[in-house]
């Protein structure tokens, strides 16, 4: 089996994978990082969003071998020294989740959204959140959290 080497949450890792192994399978099944979820498995719901070299992408639609040599960040890589990332904190403060299944993908998408659109307004957040589905909340508190998280990230 081929080997893939990359950086995940700041650590260099290598793993043997099948040619057809998806990035999300590498993360969950080989590296034990089960915070990244598989929702629809058809590139629509965004529960599997992680960052590859800083860009939010769908890890269910990326082969593990495609990310050779890249820098991947998952939800597990956001907190530092036990302190939640400001976007995670904003999701908690604004009660931006109910069941929590979509939340890791939402948070990863939200951080990329704010990095590319500092201090986003509501319209921008709603537009840029098109690739993340939540079946519980109706999005209202998620949008509030992302606006607050954006401000906390320093605009």
């Amino acid at each position: 089996m081929p080997t893939v080497s990359l950086t995940v949450n700041g650590k260099v890792v290598s793993a043997e994978v099948e040619n057809r192994t998806l990035l999300v399978q590498l993360l969950r099944e080989k590296l034990g990082l089960t915070g990244t979820h598989v929702g629809c498995d058809t590139s629509q719901c965004g529960a599997c969003v992680v960052h590859i070299n800083g860009d939010a992408v769908k890890s269910c639609t990326t082969l593990a071998l495609q990310v050779e040599g890249t820098d991947v960040t998952t939800i597990e890589g956001l907190a530092t020294n036990g302190e939640l990332h400001p976007m995670q904190e904003a999701f908690r403060d604004n009660h931006a989740l109910q069941c929590g299944f979509c939340t890791p993908g939402m948070v990863m998408a939200a951080i990329d959204l704010v990095n590319k659109n500092p201090n986003p307004d509501e319209q921008t957040v709603r537009r840029e959140l098109e690739g993340n589905l939540c079946r519980c909340t109706g999005y209202h508190n998620i949008v509030k959290a992302i606006i607050a998280g954006g401000q906390a990230m320093g605009g």
């Binding site: 860009d55 939010a56 769908k58 990326t62 998408a109 098109e130 690739g131």
Partner: peptide
């Protein structure tokens, strides 16, 4: 096209 994550790839 698609959504931001699709457009990134």
């Amino acid at each position: 096209i698609g959504d931001p994550h699709v457009r990134a790839r």
